[in-house]
Amino acid sequence: MTTRTIEILVGIFVALGLAALFMLAMKVSNLTEYSDEGGYTVSANFDNIGGLKVRAPVTMAGVRIGRVTGIQYDRERYQATVAMTIAPAYDYLPVDSHASIFTAGLLGEQYIAIEPGAEDETLRQGGRIEHTQSALVLEQIIGRVLVSLTTGGGNGNE
């Protein structure tokens, strides 16, 4: 085989390898989501964040508008402080918006859903969402259901 053929084949090989890497980056992994870095950061305090993780999605009406960028424990309020970065395209969130932690599906990952409020003033960089709703912890719900079931059964016996 001539040197030229060999070099062309090696060129194809390297190109294939790089194309595979590119595919792994773009099609298989979530690298494309990193392109929307930036935006403004707001924080919210929750009594219980359940299994919320950094980089979990922040959604409004089910549409992803940002990402959780930090979770810390607030020593003074005994609450969790969640920092989230919201894309600059969504800079019209009213200050009295409501943030809740939901679970995608029964056992899926947890995310923050924001419901817009009614104020004219909008959230800015460093703003804080005051109205929050904690994550539902499955054990607590089961506990409550059990309690209501047993008390209900007791009433029936009386």
Binding site: F13, V14, L16, G17, A20, L21, M23, L24, K27
Partner: peptide
Amino acid sequence: SMPLLAAIFSAVGV
């Protein structure tokens, strides 16, 4: 070669 081959392997496997 190895990283390129491994990337091709994973991509083709997917």
